[in-house]
Amino acid sequence: MKSVIINDYDIAIYSIWYAILNDTERFINDIINAKINIQEWEIQKNIYNKSLEEKIYSYDLAFATYFLNRTNRSGIITGGPIGGKNQNGKYKLDCRSNKSDLIRKIVRISDYKNKIQLYNMEANDFIDKIILRHNPNEIFTFFDPPYYEQGKNLYTNFFKHEDHLNLQEKINNLSDYYWILTYDNKDEILSIYEDYSKYLYSINYSASNVRKAKEILIPSIKVKLDSIDSINIETI
């Protein structure tokens, strides 16, 4: 691996990455010592809400966001605690918080920190200032913009229709680059990317009710896709 470039405009998600890369030992110790219960969930939720208002990196925001990601339904901050506040659901708050497994992954990421570049940039700026400065044959980009329909309910930084259009205009400048783009399966997205090849693939959703839905995958003209293992893609 030569290097990995991570960009997230959500300051909370960016903060997680920054803390893991730059304050690894403290982050691991806090995972070890964290109590996984509703009382702690309430504390971390309050820290998240307060810290997010500052709109700048903070360690407290990083850990609170990570705690909520591991204890909320589907890892969505607005999803509410797994099992509900009364913990009477089928799954309990700690079902996604295997501490030894989480720590192992964090250590693994930290081992490569000298090969990881981290940014907190708006997508269009990131394309102009980072992607387009690289040789097209030496970089592969995965774009994961907010969902078109449910973005406002799932993300701190969601897109309006014109934002999706603006991103598409920027991506048009990347015809010589390798990239893929994923979206929820909506007619508006199919229309915006009407000049591109489009595929459907299945994904499990469990923010409220477990269900299987199809998402759109759009590759650049330089990327060739095939179904692999358990992932089956269908041409639209």
Rank of each mutant, 00 (worst) to 15 (best):
S100A: 13
L217R: 09
N204W: 10
R26Y: 03
E162P: 01
E53C: 04
I77H: 01
G84S: 08
L217T: 09
D195H: 13
W179C: 08
K214V: 02
A19E: 00
E188I: 08
I180P: 05
S110D: 10
I189Y: 08
I5L: 15
V223L: 04
R73D: 03
Y48M: 00
N232S: 15
N157T: 13
I233D: 00
I228P: 02
M121F: 15
K45A: 09
S74K: 00
S220K: 04
A34T: 13
A123N: 11
S175E: 13
I189V: 12
K160F: 14
I109G: 01
L68S: 05
D111T: 11
I203M: 10
I16D: 05
S206D: 10
P136F: 12
D226L: 03
I236G: 02
Q87K: 07
K129D: 13
I233C: 08
D125W: 03
K186E: 15
N166L: 06
N166A: 13
Q87H: 09
G80S: 06
Q87I: 05
I139A: 03
S100L: 07
M1G: 15
A64N: 08
S208V: 15
T24C: 07
I228H: 00
V4Q: 10
I13W: 03
I189G: 00
D30M: 11
Y193S: 11
P219I: 01
T24S: 01
Y193C: 06
N166E: 09
L93T: 08
E53V: 06
S58M: 04
I216Q: 03
Y199P: 04
I47H: 02
R108C: 04
T78Y: 13
D226F: 01
F67L: 12
F140Q: 00
D195W: 06
S110Q: 07
A207S: 13
K92V: 03
I131Y: 02
M121Y: 15
A19S: 11
D229Q: 09
D10W: 11
Y196E: 00
D195Y: 12
L165K: 14
I221E: 12
Y193P: 01
L61P: 06
A123K: 06
N137D: 14
Y148Q: 02
R96G: 00
I139W: 06
D60W: 07
D125F: 05
K2H: 11
K92M: 06
W17Y: 15
Y59T: 11
G80C: 06
E194F: 13
L93K: 07
Y18S: 03
N135K: 14
I56Q: 05
Y193K: 06
L102T: 09
K90E: 05
H164Q: 13
